[in-house]
């Protein structure tokens, strides 16, 4: 038993280590929190980035009526298998991040990418106003006022964008605005690969 008795200097060292332990924990926590915030800023870390359950599966079956007055045809599941990859974009006029991502959608449309829009829980006149203000990137536009089709897609909220490949399989999902970085780092390479 006597050999287990720590000598005083050892005990003092241990006491110092115990005093420093909370400091070390706080430091580690701080570093982790900093990394998280930085990731949030650059888009590397996304707390809502749970992958969609529909990745690798065919898009759900649906038929949505057109937006009256937009001049665009409505949208149904059959329109997704057009022989080339398409983007499906859920948006609403009441959604602020949708305004942020709209220029990226406009640019994709100018580049000839087919973007199919779904107006989520929005009054038709408000959707029309939104498109008049910000432009129309959509080749087709379905109206999902009750939000039921959105649930079949596993939608969290707006904006949300899905990439469907030639054969109608969902390949990619972005819950949140498609920023310039996401466009350059994810959407464009994926579209090129799947084309």
């Amino acid at each position: 038993m006597s050999e287990a008795v720590p000598n005083p200097s050892q005990a003092a060292w241990r006491r110092r280590a115990l005093l420093l332990a909370p400091l070390a924990v706080a430091g580690l926590g701080g570093a982790g929190f900093y990394a998280m915030l930085r990731g949030l800023g650059t888009g590397d870390y996304d707390p809502r980035g749970v992958p969609s359950a529909l990745i690798g599966k065919p898009a759900p079956d649906f038929t949505l009526p057109p937006l009256e007055g937009s001049g665009l045809p409505g949208l149904s599941a059959a329109d997704l298998t057009a022989g080339r990859p398409v983007l499906v974009n859920f948006f609403a006029s009441w959604c602020v991040p949708c305004v942020i991502e709209h220029p990226q959608l406009m640019r994709l449309a100018r580049d000839g990418i087919a973007i199919l829009g779904i107006a989520y829980k929005d009054k038709p006149e408000d959707s029309l106003g939104f498109l008049k203000r910000h432009g129309t990137p959509y080749a087709r536009l379905g109206v999902d006022q009750p939000g039921r089709v959105a649930i079949d897609w596993g939608l969290y909220g707006v904006p949300e964008t899905y990439l469907i490949d030639k054969s109608g399989i969902i390949r990619w999902r972005m819950a949140g605005p498609v920023t310039e970085e996401i466009l350059a780092q994810q959407v464009t390479p994926l579209l090129r690969r799947l084309a």
Binding site: V50, P51, S52, A53, L54, I151, D152, W153, G154
Partner: peptide, 8 residues
């Protein structure tokens, strides 16, 4: 619901 939204 699980089929649409996954394990989460």
């Amino acid at each position: 619901v699980h089929e649409r939204y996954g394990d989460f």
